Amino acid sequence: MADSTTKTEVVILGAGVIGLSIAHVLTTKFPNAYNVRIVARDMPGDLSSQAFASPWAGANWSPIGGFDERTHKRETATFNKLWDMIPTGLVLSLPSRIYYHTADGLDQLWYKDLVRDFRVMDASEVPAGAKGGVRFTTVSVSPEAYLPWLHSELSARGVQFVRRRVHSLGEAAALAGPRGILVNATGLGARSLVGVEDAAVFPIRGQTVIVHAPAITEFVSFPLDSPSPNGEATHMIPRPSPAGNVLLGGTFQPGNWDTSMDAATARGILARCAALAPVLASKETQVLGHNVGLRPARKGGPRVEVEWVDTPLQSELLPVPESSAAGRVMVVHAYGFGPAGYQNSWGAAEEVTDLIQANINAL
């Protein structure tokens, strides 16, 4: 085994599902090549923190938007990885129904070969208000189990977790050091990280309700193709653990930074989901909690690319960190996945790892 002093320093800024997955892939493929530290204000165990998105996600695979080649590659890799993890109990194999306002072209949907058991519904299976629908089998995870699992896996591999609020790209680059690697997986933080200041980053507010409803065994989304003017988006996502728990949604509100629970919205979620699944109105359904999270989206799509930074990195807004030394740092940006962080996670981690390997000799 290589001595730790010969390893390249890697600092991953952000401990959400993207940052954790990158650390997992990097240490799996190259266990002796890198010293990996995850530096973040919020850690995987901070499951009640609204300051990052990962604890509040739907955390299933669901079709979002149209076809994009890079996204399709990331999501295919992620779906296959999660599918293979079903026997562990961390991932649930989930029958699904998606309804649309049109019946045209459903047999040619871009994701039909990505998921399992895809078929177009017969007209008799489609409820009032929709014109068509598809069935398939997807996957879901429970953030409250999945994030601690990633944390445990990485800790066992020697990945260090450092709780620290980082204000600037220069500060983060100084942590990586000359000839080091910095992975910027800050999500919404990329908007305010001095030296990045990506104005294309914006939140998509999501409010959901967690219930215990063992009778709900399918993922249902209705309708998928046209959110309402006030951002309502109706869906039900059963989770692998605790058994019988279901996430009911929800909202899709771009540009809304409000993290407070809105009672009227919660009542609307429960009413819309009960209309799709009347069993939810029974006394056996228990409301367990209300979630509000901000999905870290980006105009133009996720940013996954390499940027070279010469340190010390100057800024008129913040002083140069005392620990800064002259040198070159590879920065790999990986943020802006919006509502699709979990379903992009393993594929994005593979892409970041490939970028690091393709550029490592330039350090």
Results as ranks from 00 to 15, higher is better:
158 G>C: 14
258 D>M: 07
279 V>S: 09
237 I>H: 00
228 S>D: 12
215 A>Q: 14
231 G>E: 02
279 V>T: 13
205 R>N: 10
272 R>E: 12
270 L>F: 04
245 N>C: 08
159 V>I: 04
242 P>W: 10
282 S>G: 08
237 I>Q: 02
157 R>Q: 01
201 V>L: 10
178 P>L: 05
206 G>T: 09
218 E>G: 01
222 F>G: 09
165 R>P: 15
164 R>D: 12
198 D>R: 11
172 A>F: 08
186 T>R: 06
232 E>S: 13
150 L>N: 01
291 N>E: 08
266 A>M: 05
200 A>D: 15
290 H>K: 08
236 M>H: 00
199 A>W: 09
273 C>T: 04
248 L>P: 00
261 M>V: 15
150 L>Q: 05
199 A>Y: 12
175 L>W: 08
169 L>M: 11
171 E>C: 09
204 I>G: 05
272 R>H: 06
166 V>L: 07
185 A>E: 04
181 I>C: 12
245 N>T: 15
255 G>C: 04
269 I>V: 15
229 P>H: 09
262 D>Y: 08
239 R>F: 03
230 N>I: 13
253 Q>T: 03
148 P>R: 03
200 A>F: 13
278 P>T: 00
200 A>R: 15
235 H>Y: 14
267 R>V: 01
202 F>Y: 15
224 L>S: 13
148 P>E: 00
236 M>K: 02
286 Q>V: 15
255 G>D: 15
189 G>A: 11
176 A>N: 10
284 E>M: 12
251 T>G: 00
188 L>Q: 01
283 K>E: 15
291 N>L: 13
168 S>M: 08
287 V>L: 02
267 R>I: 07
212 H>T: 03
161 F>T: 12
164 R>A: 12
290 H>T: 07
287 V>G: 06
264 A>I: 14
238 P>F: 00
246 V>K: 01
152 S>G: 13
236 M>Q: 06
256 N>H: 13
264 A>S: 14
194 V>L: 01
280 L>G: 07
204 I>A: 03
176 A>Q: 03
240 P>Y: 04
162 V>A: 10
220 V>L: 14
250 G>A: 06
150 L>F: 04
183 V>A: 10
254 P>I: 11
269 I>N: 11
203 P>K: 05
147 L>I: 02
250 G>L: 02
238 P>N: 03
248 L>V: 05
200 A>H: 14
167 H>V: 12
280 L>W: 03
250 G>K: 06
285 T>M: 14
143 P>V: 11
182 L>F: 00
